[in-house]
Design a protein around this nucleic acid. Structure first.
Lengths: 212, 212
DNA sequence: TATATGAAACGAAACGTTCCGTTTCGCAAG
DNA sequence: CTTGCGAAACGGAACGTTTCGTTTCATATA
């Protein structure tokens, strides 16, 4: 059973010896449409080409696999994240993670989290994609780096804190929840940040939670 | 290009109106062999059947997808985990995680971590597999539950600590590293446990680490 | 008799490539 | 400034290949 999807109507023609931005936009839009209609796993390159009114050769020229199309969509979905208020590390982290998780959940229309986790999965057998994904992640976590650095400057973190390691620590729980399909609600995000800041022994994890 | 793999030699026949355990074992062994030879992504049901000298119909009768075969292999790879020494939470966690991560890494021959993460990925579009995976995880984390409970009884954790939540917290960093293909070395495991116990503010994350 | 087995063959679907004819760009000759 | 031309990208169609999941068959056991 194949879902019925109306292809785009505008027909595009070659713009000559340059990459067509209209085609690129059409492909990304087509991918997002199919993601919503049939889900990531059921998306095929053929269907994307048809939906975008593009040739398969054009797809393969710019994107080796559908995961690369997904990565293009991720890169385009930049968050409008306000710079950290700089009041407290706790508030900054809650704000940052809330926006990030909202983007993953699809509050802006596109469920970026679904794309992210599939990119991770396909990177397990595609070193080139793994490298591209790592570069994207580095760029995206710049602001988290700023948040932690500012907190260290204010004395909220010990001087000499390993920022790369701290970034991993902060992101590991959210990403784990993304991978297990249990993205947290806003209240849960605050508790998650408290646990991350205080650790297991702090006792801040005394809250009811759903079963695993 | 297809890798050359020597199929098994023993030929099996029907054992009557019962499931053949010999065939089941042959299929699991064939899967492990192919995993080592060509990698998870390149494994096909046809190749598994050929390698195991089994009929495709037999495969599909017992395992709907190759991820289900992987899950069977995971379930078979039980760790011989010693019960917690009960001396300190830190030591118990380091011991538990070291064994778990060693199993993932493939110290026992089979790189279980590769199977686990692919099962997670296929569970994203297969609710039935997701449920089976969750049941497997619940069973496998029983001992972690015991460790945390004993620590609470000893007063190392606040009474009333949410154990399900604490389990997630403890496992999130290891699983995150599994998903990003950066399983930690023994020394890194100890630092990881310290950070998990103490949290970001404790300052125990002041160590050099590789870049992300 | 009922059920499981290995083996073989099948149609359907997606893959990735290769053509085709068209369009546009950059550059060089007139 | 105009013209011509190679290079490159475009949509579209067709191709052979691979993998899928199913079906059929003869055989073997309880």
């Amino acid at each position: 059973m194949t879902a019925q999807v109306t292809p785009q109507q505008e027909t595009r023609t070659s713009v000559g010896a340059r990459r067509s931005e209209a085609t690129e936009a059409a492909v990304l839009e087509a991918f997002a449409t199919l993601l919503d209609e049939v889900g990531y796993a059921a998306i095929t390159m053929e269907a994307v080409a048809k939906q975008a009114r593009a040739g398969k050769a054009t797809l393969y020229r710019w994107w080796p696999t559908k995961a690369h199309i997904a990565l293009s969509l991720i890169s385009k979905a930049k968050v409008e994240i306000a710079p950290p208020a700089g009041v407290s590390l706790r508030d900054d982290l809650i704000d940052y993670l809330s926006r990030m998780i909202g983007l993953w959940r699809g509050d802006a229309g596109l469920p970026v989290g679904v794309l992210v986790r599939h990119c991770y999965a396909e990177a397990w057998s595609d070193p080139e994609l793994a490298e591209a994904l790592q570069a994207e992640r580095r760029e995206r976590w710049t602001m988290l780096n700023d948040i932690l650095q500012a907190a260290m400057a204010r004395g909220e973190l010990p001087t000499g804190t390993d920022l790369a390691r701290a970034k991993d620590f902060v992101m590991s729980w959210p990403i784990y929840l993304l991978m297990t399909d249990r993205l947290p609600s806003p209240e849960e995000i605050a508790r998650m940040v408290d646990d991350t800041l205080g650790g297991l022994r702090s006792g801040s994890s005394r809250h009811p939670s759903r079963d695993t």
